[in-house]
Design a protein around this nucleic acid. Structure first.
Lengths: 121, 121
DNA sequence: CCAATAAGTAACCTAATGGTTACCTATGGT
DNA sequence: ACCATAGGTAACCATTAGGTTACTTATTGG
C-alpha cells in the first residue's frame, strides 16, 4: 500500500457512520444499501456518499447485479495495516511503555512517559 | 476507545505528513518540532498544526521543558485498534477470502468475491 | 405493460482541512 | 543585558467533507 492508499483507507475509517456501515457489510455479506438504510439517521444519498468513500478505499467491493448492488467487505487493506503495525511496533508493545498510561494514577501520562523514556534513552 | 476517539485517531493517521511525523517521533523519542522541520516541505506552522492533530488523537505526548517541547510516541491507541482488529477479523483473515484478491488473475476481485461469498452464504 | 423499487446524478450549503504569512512570548547562551 | 532560538496565536485562503433536496435511470414483480 502506498501513501495515497493509506490516506484513503484511514480517511474512510475516520467516521463512525462509515465504520458502522463497514461493520454491517461485514456482518451481512451481499446486503444492499437500501437494506442498511434503516440503521442510519442520514439520507440515502448521504449514506451512498459514505459507501463511495469505502469503495474508493477498496474496503468494500460491490458488483451490480440487475437493479441491486450487493456489498462485500474487503478486509485486505485492514490486514495489511495490521501486519505492518505488528512489525513496526512489536518492540514498543513488548515493553512496558505502552501500558504505562494505565499504570499511573497520580501523575499525568505525559510526565511519566517523559521520565521513563529518558531512563531508556 | 469510544467512537469520537476513533474518529480523531483515524483522522490523524489519514495524512502522510502526519504519519511521517509520527514515525520520526517514534524513531527519535524526545525530539522537538524544530529538529524535525527540515524533513518536511511545509512551513513550521503547517507542521505544528499536524502535530496538534496527533496530540489531539493522543498519539503523541508532549511535555514542555524550558523553551523546548520534547515529543514522544504514545502507541496505546494504535495497540487498542490493533487488538480490536485481531479479534474482529480473526475468522475473516483465517479464511481464504482475504487473500482472494491476490489469487485471482483473469477475473475482477469483485466478481470472484461475489461468487465465493454466495457459496459460503 | 406499468408502477414500485434500487440505484445514481446534479446542485447546493456549511463546516472542517491543510496550508500560508505576520506577529507575539519566553527562554537560554554568551 | 540582549539577541538568537523554540514555540505559539491570529487571521486568512482554497479545497474537501458531509450533508441536504430534487430529479433521472433502470429493473422487476404482478
Amino acid at each position: 500500500m502506498n501513501e495515497q492508499q493509506l490516506d484513503t483507507v484511514f480517511l474512510a475509517l475516520a467516521n463512525s457512520s462509515r465504520r458502522q456501515l463497514l461493520d454491517l457489510i461485514a456482518a451481512r455479506p451481499g446486503c444492499t444499501l437500501s437494506q442498511l438504510l434503516s440503521e442510519f439517521d442520514i439520507s440515502r444519498i448521504g449514506l451512498m456518499k459514505h459507501l463511495q468513500v469505502l469503495l474508493d478505499a477498496d474496503l468494500v467491493i460491490a458488483h451490480r447485479q440487475g437493479r441491486e448492488r450487493p456489498l462485500y467487505l474487503n478486509a485486505v487493506p485492514l490486514q495489511l495495516i495490521h501486519e505492518r503495525w505488528s512489525e513496526q511496533y512489536r518492540d514498543f508493545w513488548a515493553s512496558q511503555l505502552t501500558r504505562l498510561k494505565y499504570a499511573v494514577e497520580n501523575q499525568t501520562a505525559a510526565e511519566k512517559v517523559t521520565t521513563r523514556t529518558k531512563d531508556k534513552v
